[in-house]
């Protein structure tokens, strides 16, 4: 807000009778103290971030709603544009790949929606701390709340896009039963990975400002290298290219239950490995560097 002129209008304000503000809450409830123990300060940061969920929940909600406040459909604008994209890709690639539309559309739709979630977590994860630099530099906010905000914000977007899947479910005979609910724990796993990803990439991007561009171009390549538009079965004889791609497994654990296919056990192993390794790496890095973030942004 750079409007600092026209202060004259304020004149009326100060004629208001002296207000009596309520007595402050107990001081001891608001203690801030440094410690030389990095692990302790990291744990304190994370627990403070969890305790202050109303703040990041509100910020994330605002991020989504304000982006679309001025459009007629609000955030459902996202749903519409995603729906159009899936429709067009579905027709074109359905023909190219000579797949029956009834089978191809659900596959494509779930793939594109889940991919949208994953790629947003990765690419927005780079901005985790940078986008809030002015807050971080001036207040003692827990830093761990920023990855939470990014994941929560993208969950909201994902749920808006999931409407497309629900519509397809009504229109097309997708062979799913209660087994589709297996997508929910899988989604939670993706969110857990989004947390470490946002913290780690956010930290590195705050220090090295060219990372977001590198990541953005890599994610573009990954979109085409991952079976989203094309099916893994089509890549005959070269299945190593798919199973070595971590993004395939991340997409598959959510997509497969939604289109009535079994999730390969191998995919769960890979995703489990990514989660454990990612969290371990991020906790180590966050423990070491969380105090430097306000210097970097």
């Amino acid at each position: 807000m750079e409007k600092r002129n026209g202060i004259g209008e304020v004149a009326a304000l100060w004629t208001v009778a002296n207000p009596v503000c309520a007595t402050p809450a107990r001081p001891a409830r608001h203690v801030w103290e440094t410690t030389s123990n990095r692990t302790a300060s990291m744990l304190r940061d994370i627990s403070a971030a969890l305790r202050r969920w109303p703040l990041w929940v509100r910020l994330g909600w605002q991020d989504v709603m304000l982006r679309y406040r001025r459009s007629l459909l609000g955030p459902f604008w996202l749903t519409l544009s995603m729906g159009v994209m899936i429709g067009i890709l579905g027709v074109i690639y359905g023909n190219i790949l000579r797949l029956p539309r009834v089978q191809y559309l659900p596959f494509l739709a779930t793939g594109v929606i889940v991919w949208g979630f994953i790629s947003a977590l990765v690419s927005e994860g780079c901005q985790t701390f940078i986008e809030s630099d002015w807050l971080i530099r001036q207040m003692d906010l827990p830093l761990a709340m920023f990855p939470m905000r990014v994941v929560w914000r993208n969950l909201i977007v994902f749920l808006h896009n999931a409407v497309i899947y629900l519509l397809l479910l009504l229109i097309l005979p997708i062979p799913v039963g209660w087994g589709a609910l297996a997508a929910i724990p899988a989604l939670l796993i993706l969110m857990a990975n989004g947390l470490w990803c946002g913290a780690l990439l956010g930290m590195i991007s705050a220090r090295f400002r060219d990372l977001p561009q590198i990541v953005a171009s890599l994610m573009q390549v990954a979109f085409f290298a991952t079976p989203i538009i094309w099916s893994a079965d089509a890549l005959t004889g070269n299945s190593g290219l798919v199973s070595a791609n971590p993004f395939f497994h991340l997409v598959e654990i959510v997509r497969a239950p939604l289109i009535g296919r079994p999730v390969p056990i191998f995919s769960w192993w890979v995703v489990g490995g990514i989660s454990v390794a990612g969290w371990a790496m991020t906790l180590l890095a966050f423990r070491h560097f969380h105090r430097r973030i306000s210097y970097w942004v």
């Binding site: 001081p27 409830r29 608001h30 203690v31 103290e33 440094t34 971080i136 001036q138």
Partner: peptide
Amino acid sequence: AMWPARGHVRRVGL
């Protein structure tokens, strides 16, 4: 907002 490299800070109060 900034964590000192060395030393101790303690602050009580909103």
